[in-house]
Amino acid sequence: MELNKETVDGVCVVSPEGRLDSNTSPAFEAELLALLDDSPTLVIRFADLEYISSAGLRVMLMAAKKVRQLNGQLVLCEIHEPIREVFEISGFLSILDVCDDRAVAVARARGED
């Protein structure tokens, strides 16, 4: 798995690419939590992710908990099938901040939407 990063309107947008499973989640968790230490406002874009298991969702929940503690903002976007179904059955679509589009996600992370 690769974690691609870009900055859009001052907001860090990270795009995991490939598979997020029990093999790749530990590295993803370490990198994501380190990014949140730098700045607790983050957009995660799922367009390039092919696969997610419960190990990947666990990292999402940990990140969301950390963002709450730090009073930051975490917005997830471009969650397509089949990944969307995994978020859906976990109940995560209703507890996490999720939107379709990267531009909307960035605006929301900046507190503009």
């Binding site: 190990a55 929940l61 940990m62 969301a64 976990s90 996490l96």
Partner: peptide, 18 residues
């Protein structure tokens, strides 16, 4: 438990649920 918000949800246990 799928109830509750981000603070309430337990980290883990979803695999067997899937």
């Amino acid at each position: 438990s799928l109830e509750g918000g981000v603070e309430d949800r337990a980290v883990g246990g979803l695999g067997l649920y899937f």
